[in-house]
Design a protein around this nucleic acid. Sequence first.
RNA 1: GCCGCGGUGGCGGAAUUGGUAGACGCGAGGGACUUAAAAUCCCUUGGUAGUGAUACCGUGAGAGUUCGAUUCUCUCCCGUGGCACCA
Length: 1194
Amino acid sequence: MTNKYNHQKIEKKWAERWVKDKVFSPDLKKSENPYYALFMFPYPSAEGLHIGNFYAFTCVDVMAKYKKLQGMDVFEPVGFDAFGIHSENYALKIGETPRKMLDRTIVNFRKQLSSAGLGCDWTREIDTTTPEYYKWTQWIFTKLFEKDLAYQKEALLNWCSGCKTVLADEQIEDGVCERCKTVPEKKTMKQWFFRITKYAEKLLNGLETMDWSDITKSAQRNWIGRSEGAEVEFVIKNERNDIKKIYLGTGNKSKIERLEKIFKYVNPDIKIEQVPEVVDVPEESDNGLENSKQKVLAYHGKYDYPVVSCDTSVFFEGEDFDPTHVKRVALGGEDESGFSQREIAEKIKDFYIDIARKYGGRKEFYFEDAWTILFPNGEIKQLKYRREYIMTDKLQGELDIYFPMRSLYLVKATGRDIFNQTEEEWKKEFQPQIDAFSGVFGKSKLKVFTTRPDTLFGATYFVMSPEHPLVREITTKEQSEKIEDYIKKSGAKSELERTENKEKTGEFTGAYVVNPVNNEEIPVFVADYVMMGYGTGAIMAVPAHDERDFEFAKKFNISIKEVVKPKNSGKDKTILVLHGLCDDSSKHWFPWFKQEFGGRGYNVIIPDMPNPHLPRVERWMDCLKELKDDLSGNLTIVGFSLGTQAACMFIDKYNVAVNNLILVGPSEKEGKTIEELVEAGLPRESLEHSEKFGEERVDWKNVRRLVKNTIQYLSSNDPYIEIETEKYSDVLNPQKRIFFNRGHFTEKFGIDKILELIPDIEGCTVGDGIAVNSGFLDGLETSTAKEKMISWLEGKKIGKGVVNYRLRDWCISRQRYWGPPVPIVYCAKCGALAVFEKDLPVRLPELEKGWEPVGDGRGPLANVDDFMNTTCPKCGGAASREADVMDNFLDSAWYFFRYIDPKNNNKIFDQKLGKKWLPVDFYVGGNEHAVLHLMYTRFITMALHDIDLIDFDNPFKKFRANGMILKDGKKMSKSKGNVINPEEYGEKVGYDALKTYLLFLGPLNEDRSFTDEGVRGTKRWVEKIARLEEKIKNSHKDENEIINKLHKTIKMVTDDFEDQRYNTAVARLMELTNVLNLADKISTQTWKSFLVLVSPFVPSIAEEMWERLGNKNSIFSDKLWPEYDAKLAHDEFIELIVQVNGKLREKIEVSIDITEEEAKKIALESGKIKKWIEGKKIEKVIFVKGKLINIVVK
RNA sequence: GCCGCGGUGGCGGAAUUGGUAGACGCGAGGGACUUAAAAUCCCUUGGUAGUGAUACCGUGAGAGUUCGAUUCUCUCCCGUGGCACCA
């Protein structure tokens, strides 16, 4: 053989040639038909290229080559995702700096990738660890900071003690750190976050129209976790909420009106009244001081109500004023008393302290005004400026309650007609007042989130998460010790323990809340089955319709109130009784059974005596046939005697799913127990007996799988089944026994025994149904009931329909070294500031020592003074840097933007180029990144869209998640020693054969098994292609058969490419190869088309053959993909399929254009067909043009 | 438990809007070439019965719709991915 195929030589030659001739390095500016093919850039691990990654690259590469052959300007970039804990941990392990290690591994990766025959553009390689790259990672942070999409907050976070850093929720897999498998601790820490939750709805809705793999979309959908429901407020039962009336010491009418209006929002239960004795004062001379002082003093003692005075002075006049009558105090007003504010404050200080003591140290009484502030701890502060200063956030933060009473006047003073405002305008104007008063006079409430507002009437208790901030507040003194203990205990449990051990625990707080729909007071518990991180951290518990609540209620003996009747309630509590075809039993026993269970809410069905003319079991089957559709579901069947067999057969034959199956039969028959009889398939009598009657056997396995809960065998002779004869004497026969089967054996039953055997029948029902015991919801279906309840709550302003998401903000801080520093500077004066663009990048110092993670909650950079000390970009004063670095998933969330303009020093990328090349056309990668990289990328893209950098918000037009490669059916792992090294196979069989094999194995999205035998197949194919060359004859003209096959293949392969069905595309090409192989000669023209068709899969051999035809340019440099010619692919003859009654009986070669008439004639003449239709009547003939004819006979 | 995907020969997998089930490849068996081996080429290869033509069965199980179901509908089983004391 002249051209013995040497894959190593050829593949090396072409890999070098492609780079040298820049075959795959397009001019991005000049390109007219851009096609951006992207694979997930690899993390350059020390192990080298992983076959899984290599497979994904191949999927992209094949597509890229196909598009290129179709004349597109294809861009297939390559780079390295080298920052991150992954690299750093490995560097730690081998005791080398990450930089040194990566410099080595990247070289290795480059070598591996460039020899694999991929069409990558090496001129635009990127590496996320270079300052040129991470400058823009930091820039993105500063932009997000500007937009309030990056922020700092204290939160309960996942701290990984293995990696010594906090992690994002997405980086916890199965409850452990995705990197080092440590169980993370929950720690409250202050960290930087990206506000991904702002895009929750958008991220979710976007999925609907995106052309991404379903598994990826479904993973994202689940992660975002949208649920619709309602937020409901529960008023806490406490003294504060008992306030019914507030007397105003003084003030004119308009002031009272304003307050009334405010209180409508604050607490509509509270009435505002002027102390009756106070005489109204004229509007403009708001000076009822003397008067009011006396009046307040006068009413004091008479009224056991709280007082609000707009004039502080009322409180310190008169020695006999007893503050204990006053439950809540708000102060405000002008300094008109003749005392200085300081003096006022001093005077009322004791008063506050006294009240504070009386009401459990609660800090609720504070006042604003003027020059002096009295703080809860008794401290008095003299202010420099008046109101302006008070309004600063800082001071408000220190005060628990702030009453901007004065603005009541200020509003008036502006001259606006506040009484003719619309309600909305008014509310907006007075919102600060409303909020302030709400703090003290508003009812103290707890909010819950529920997806089942329709079950509110069934809420019989209330649960707060142990981490809930108000737990201590509401706990009564008596319970506080227990609660403290419980909080401590559950805090010590890890998240994993908490979810693994599902045994419910909890503790009563001593407090009660009021169920708003029926004003019932329900107890408040603390229990760790309620999580602080979801919803509001508190729930209303409806034990009748929630399994967890049910379990808890059972354990703590809390009442269970059914408020939803399941739609199929007939089934849920249905007992079907199949008896033994005996008159006596039905007479004596069934009335009792019906009465007893019916009284307990069960629906007892005892079918009438079946047709006595049919043989035995068939009588039952005959009668049950009609019942099967109505009954399939969650019923319980009790079978006696022959009824046991009927029950089993009923379940088996009709596939009726049941909850419980109770079989009562003889304790022993022919040496067999009832269990044995049943499992033998013929429970009633002896096998012989049944065979005599020709009874079918029961497939016991099938029965077993259809019974959800229990199968119980009861022997009718068992002594433990005692009937409660006294109770049921009236329905039992005089002998107080029940006889079955004409006295063959006696059954004795107790009701409790049966109830015990039906364990789940009295559980909770979670599904939809009809509302009952629910006041205004009664009779409504769940969905309507939900709506009605929500509008009721909204009308009462105690709740509203809300949508809740599981998704939480992305924590991006890492207390590590190997990442881009968070570009933030802390200045004592100016606070946290983002570094200006001109000062970026904030360089990561190159450390030889001291870069290891510390574990004290701060990154190692905190100890690098040169790095930490800086100046404030705003005021120039001394400042310090943020010591943490950013999550490496941020690096990879935007890299494809940089690829198109990797050397741009002034901009993240050129927007003109972006407009042309973005978004990415085709992207492939592993689905393990579904909620990490792929979600973050979508978020960053949306954020960049919102800063007007780009005009799209889906980064990848088409994304496909590739399946896993298994070796011989098993997961690859180093420990098993079954890792496939692409380089090794590249050398052994060649990359052409290896890549084709990977694609040929199966559909791109599915897992498939790689075998060494299998790869030989594609290797043989490549060799066969090489050998075909011998058959080429320049002047030869191919037979029609070959041309026809070629064009059919063009069509199918093109279609396959468009849907990424690479496996079938390869199969088609193999077929074509086999056809060509049978020919003696092949024309050059056919050969050329053939080479182009196979070139995406086997680029090196195709190039080699192409060159030998005398071509100077690469096969990939021109638009060469062959056009499909329908005429040439057209068949003249087909095999007509002839069916009789839908069964294939004959194939006849006919013209493709054959008409129905002709086909029918030919078919009916066929000897084979005649045989099948002989003596039968032709009912109808179905003809599918160009395919088949079906003759229907009877 | 909820949401998604899947179940077809000894194996990986094909089968367009319901129309020849098992393409293509691996493996296995037989043959040709060869001193021999490798490579290559040819034949057979879902099961059962039969020398054979052929017949019957067969796409996780069972029902249904249809002239006809791997494909559509229902019930159920198994595998797998995601979420999960998520209210």
